[in-house]
């Protein structure tokens, strides 16, 4: 495969991975979400508060803690609504078996009566690594634009 072709191939694989993780979160296939992260992996949820003029971290966990949170979620009183991710990968830069990707996401929430609302918008900043032939998320920073949730949730966005 030519360099250009292989670059396109890698980019497509990364795009698919990011889209797939969104779908897996929607279907609550948490084992597969975790399998999409490298070890030790990290997931950070950030937002900026204009009210106090500060960058905030709302969640910062390693892969193992993320797994625990996802497993735990069933025992917590949790939101019964469905979620739908819509993700556009805006930018991918590849370098020596690693990649940085920036995506824009929106998450819609469909309540039990069937009413859908926009729940959150923001960006993913992903650092990806290759494990054999497979791309994995090494670290994901979720930069939220939405700061008021209709329903709070410990589930990753």
């Amino acid at each position: 495969m030519s360099d250009v072709a292989s670059q396109l191939f890698e980019r497509e694989a990364i795009r698919e991975l990011i889209a797939r993780v969104g779908r897996l979160l929607d279907t609550k296939d948490f084992a597969a979400v975790i399998a999409s992260f490298a070890e030790p992996g990290s997931y950070v949820l950030r937002a900026y508060s204009p009210e106090i003029g500060k960058e905030m971290i709302w969640m910062s966990v390693k892969r193992a803690e993320l797994l625990r949170l996802l497993k735990e979620s069933a025992e917590h009183v949790h939101d019964l609504a469905d979620r739908t991710h819509q993700i556009t990968v805006d930018q991918i830069s590849l370098e020596k078996g690693e990649a940085l990707a920036r995506s824009t996401f929106s998450v819609f929430r469909t309540d039990m009566k069937g009413q859908s609302d926009l729940f959150a918008v923001g960006h993913y900043e992903d650092r990806l690594v290759k494990n054999g032939d497979t791309w994995l998320i090494d670290s994901r920073t979720v930069r939220l634009h939405t700061r008021m949730f209709t329903v709070p949730t410990p589930l990753p966005l």
């Binding site: 969640m59 939101d79 949730f149 329903v151 949730t153 410990p154």
Partner: peptide
Amino acid sequence: RIQHHNEVWGPAGRNLPEDIAA
């Protein structure tokens, strides 16, 4: 402190969704 805050509280903490649901 931020980690301790977020383990239980905040919009992505364990307890707030439960309080709001109730």
